[in-house]
């Protein structure tokens, strides 16, 4: 019994109780009087939260500075949408195909060449990859609709209601986050912490940077591509605007403002940015300025993002009682951007 009790105890920790309550609230939300617009934005938030979380997986956890994740998103979206439209297939079949196609394309075209390089070359080549896609979309405009975009993409269900879309997006988000936790806490996560802490020692102990990098890249591409496919079938229309600089910056600031290298940060960031963006539509181009300002201020003054502030607040609350050596709070709060330790989450 003691063993079982010990295994149950961590589940009852405050953090997990909070997460469980938030989960229950999210499930109940449509019944608590959320209107259609809010549900729509919330569904988008789930999609962007997955994209931001998996972007953070490569950049924040694995230290691979990829800037091409919106490209992964677009490949998933366009592959699934074109297949469903041209071949008259159900989105339920084309979405996994889109995700797998993204994984295959990205791993071969980007992962293999990129992971032999380092630092800034990775950033630039992935960015160039994403930037070349609008041209590719235009070249294949017979299928993709070119610059105007693709309209009338089959939706997930006939006459998809907003609350249905909400639950589909929530389910996808839950699965993607569970997978992310497995990756971060599992072998690839351990490998990248080791490589970051001491690369030579890790290599001497048999950690293969290239293999682990490729694995993380493939997983990230799969879920980002899937998110793109879901996005296409939720909205029923897509355009190359998703590859534009504004969308790119918005998603990159989600995980950055939220807290790079944490599990919760990108989700919080996605919620803030997505809702902020929808409610500030009237502000027009001011949003661009605000985004730039937010990025600059975050980098300069609190590189750990929102999670750093949360960690600091928690450290302030708990320090007198538990002492300063609690790695859950103190070290988590001191993490720089991209240091990728999950201590901010409380190991």
């Amino acid at each position: 019994m003691r063993g079982a009790g010990r295994r149950l105890m961590p589940l009852l920790r405050p953090r997990n109780l909070v997460l469980a309550s938030v989960g229950a609230l999210l499930v109940a939300w449509p019944y608590l009087g959320a209107d259609r617009f809010v549900l729509h934005v919330a569904a988008l938030t789930f999609v962007w939260a997955v994209v931001a979380s998996y972007w953070n997986l490569t950049n924040g956890f694995a230290g691979i500075t990829s800037l091409g994740n919106m490209g992964f998103f677009a490949i998933g979206a366009y592959t699934s949408a074109v297949l469903a439209k041209e071949l008259d297939l159900t989105p339920w079949a084309t979405m996994p195909v889109g995700a797998l196609a993204t994984m295959a394309l990205v791993t071969v075209l980007v992962g293999l060449p990129v992971l032999r390089l380092r630092g800034i070359y990775i950033a630039l080549l992935t960015l160039a990859f994403a930037d070349a896609l609008p041209s590719v979309i235009t070249i294949f405009r017979a299928w993709t609709g070119g610059g105007i975009g693709l309209l009338g993409i089959p939706e997930l269900l006939e006459d998809l209601e907003k609350w249905q879309a909400y639950y589909f997006a929530l389910a996808f988000f839950a699965v993607a986050q569970a997978a992310l936790v497995l990756v971060v806490r599992g072998a690839p996560g351990l490998a990248f912490v080791a490589l970051r802490d001491s690369e030579p020692f890790a290599q001497a102990l048999g950690v293969d940077r290239f293999k682990e990098g490729l694995r993380v890249f493939a997983i990230s591409a799969f879920f980002t591509g899937f998110a793109g496919a879901l996005y296409a079938h939720l909205l029923g229309q897509i355009s190359p605007a998703m590859l534009g600089i504004e969308q790119f910056l918005m998603v990159i600031s989600m995980w950055m403002l939220g807290g790079a290298g944490t599990l919760l940060g990108p989700v919080l960031g996605a919620a803030i940015i997505t809702f902020g963006n929808e409610y500030l539509r009237v502000a027009g181009s001011l949003r661009l300025g605000l985004l730039g300002l937010a990025i600059v201020i975050t980098v300069l003054f609190f590189p750990g993002g929102i999670m750093q502030l949360v960690g600091r607040a928690r450290g302030f609350l708990t320090r007198p009682r538990r002492g300063g050596s609690d790695p859950d709070t103190v070290d988590g709060a001191a993490l720089p951007v991209g240091s990728g330790s999950e201590t901010g989450e409380g190991r």
Binding site: L190, V193, A194, R196, D197, S198, P200, F201, A202, D331, S341, T343
Partner: peptide
């Protein structure tokens, strides 16, 4: 000069 994995 050994460098352990200090976050683990």
């Amino acid at each position: 000069t050994p460098a352990l994995f200090h976050s683990l």
